[in-house]
Nucleic acid binder design. Structure first.
Length: 483
RNA sequence: GGCGCGUUGGAGAAGUGGCUUAACUCACCAGCCUUUCACGCUGGCAUUCAUGGGUUCGAAUCCCGUACGCGUCACCA
């Protein structure tokens, strides 16, 4: 059997979408598993919307995810160029061949005429499709249109009455009728090919063996199959992967929040978590296992285990997965990860930055979460809620806090170890322990009942902030501070 | 509207005619542990597989209809 060759062929009309990333991933896994080739091609024939920035974003996103292409844009290869706008003469030649063989023809109808026809068909409850009016134009009629300066499009002459069968690797056998297709456009009037035409030409010329793409393309496949047929080209294997849906079960879009890979990168998600998550959307492993490295995915991936039904993107699960990976990171990776989300006052001192990273690592689901923890150690003491206030009314509180403050401020340095020791000593001296000991201190220092280890938090906030906050707590309790 | 695809608990899903009194994971709930919280651990969470028929000794698994969801019918990809 010949070598497997797959491709990811996005159009650079925006940042890499989460669904596109999954298609790329599945293609990549398939190729990597079989030792095949993974090609990156740019379908930039939409001149209105294609931008160089989008292309860069797509490439960056792919690299960030660890999805490498061994042929295509930037890296080159035997079938270059890999940008469709640089291959226009190729499409032109194939179009001319089709015309010469009578399998395609020039069409001079204006967009207004077509639109009118469309509306009329719609009104009659018919499927709108091109009537084939220009199909049998004589040479004279064509010359006349040309003389009028009308730039024609090239249409494919769809053969009537044919069954078009797709043997799809994930959906099974799907049958369409050629009569359901109008004579679709191959070349636009400006000489640029349409998507259907360009993909077929490129996939064939680039020797693509497997096409793995989103389900939205399933209904487009008949047209492409017709082209393979007309050109006498061998058809690739198709696999249409179901869509990724938002919470409301409609196709994932901006409305649902973050849809691009870059969004997740910027929010402090880890690429290995996103890859793992994407793989689990629409594909199920054989074993009862959730955590997969890229290598493991390559080893285990199979199209036969790709699901037919659409999957809802569940942010909670992504977060959980991300937490799993984040908790395993080395300290310096955590430091690097959280730094972008902190202000300068926090990032200047290496030692305290490391302490912060160590303190929070197991509490973070993604790096940007670090922001939510900062009020615990920075700024004004947050307001107490009713529960906190009630705890602070207990009788041991004033004495405990005074003793604690006095002992602690007497120390030259406030390390987590010292804080812990001091707290223990205070508890012992006053005969207070457990929650009765820790809770008041925690609430007086952080304003919250919950959070990471209190000794570390206190060390992180430093004497000034602690002093301020304890003073504020005493004021709230209307007792005189005495340290 | 035509055509196509899909429908297992809130989410991802396993399951392809008897071994399923439907795995596993997230979320949720309860408890345990813990000098708080978190982490972790334990247990709970679908008598039922959209729905109605049919085939069969036996169906989530096969067939037909219905409903619902989505996709597609562009000189966008």
């Amino acid at each position: 059997m010949s070598k497997i060759r797959v491709r990811f062929a996005p159009s650079p009309t925006g940042p890499l979408h989460i669904g596109g990333a999954r298609s790329a991933l599945f293609n990549y896994l398939l190729a990597a598993k079989a030792g095949g080739d993974f090609i990156l091609r740019m379908e930039d024939t939409d001149r209105e919307r294609s931008t160089p920035e989008s292309e860069e974003n797509i490439k960056d996103s792919l690299r960030w995810l660890g999805i490498q292409w061994n042929e295509g844009i930037d890296v080159g290869g035997p079938y270059a160029p890999y940008r469709q706008m640089e291959r226009l003469d190729t499409y032109q030649k194939v179009a001319e061949q089709l015309i010469a063989e009578g399998k395609a023809y020039y069409c001079y109808c204006s967009e207004a005429e077509i639109e009118e026809e469309r509306q009329a068909q719609l009104a009659k409850g018919e499927t709108p499709r091109y009537s084939g009016r220009c199909r049998h134009l004589t040479a004279e009629e064509r010359a006349e249109k040309e003389a009028q300066g009308i730039k024609p499009v090239v249409r494919f002459a769809v053969p009537p009455g044919q069954d078009i069968v797709i043997e799809d690797q994930v959906r099974g056998r799907v049958v369409f009728q050629s009569d359901g297709e109008g004579d679709f456009i191959l070349m636009k009037s400006d000489g640029i090919p349409t998507y259907h035409f360009a993909v077929v030409v490129d996939d064939h010329l680039m020797q693509i063996t497997h096409i793995v793409r989103a389900e939205e393309h399933l209904s487009n496949t008949p047209r492409q199959l017709l082209l393979y047929e007309a050109l006498g080209w061998e058809k690739p294997v198709f696999a249409h992967v179901s869509l990724i849906l938002g919470k409301d079960r409609s196709k994932m879009s901006k409305r649902h929040g973050s849809v691009s890979v870059t969004n997740y990168r910027d929010q402090g998600y880890l690429p290995q978590a996103l890859v793992n998550f994407l793989a689990l959307l629409g594909w199920a492993p054989e074993e009862k296992k959730e955590l997969f490295t890229m290598e493991e995915l390559i080893a285990e991936f199979s199209l036969s285990r790709v699901s037919k039904s659409p999957a809802v993107f569940d942010l909670d699960k992504l977060k959980w997965l991300n937490g799993q990976y984040l908790h395993q990171l080395d300290l310096d990776q955590v430091v690097a990860g959280i730094t972008p989300y902190l202000d300068d006052s926090m990032t200047q001192n290496t030692a305290s930055l490391q302490l912060l990273a160590a303190t929070l690592q197991n509490h973070l689901l993604c790096f940007s979460d670090v922001k939510e923890f900062m009020p615990l150690i920075q700024g004004e003491l947050p307001q107490w809620d009713a529960e906190c206030a009630a705890i602070m009314q207990k009788e041991q509180v004033p004495g405990l806090l005074c003793l604690f403050a006095k002992s602690l401020f007497a120390l030259p340095e406030m390390t987590p170890e010292e804080v812990k020791k001091t707290l223990k000593a205070c508890g012992k001296e006053l005969g207070v322990k457990g929650a009765d000991l820790f809770m008041p201190v925690r609430i007086a220092a952080t304003g919250m009942q919950h959070g990471p280890d209190i000794d570390k938090l206190i060390a992180l906030m430093g004497k000034n902030v602690l002093d301020q906050r304890l003073t504020e707590s005493f004021a709230r309790l209307q007792i005189i501070k005495s340290w």
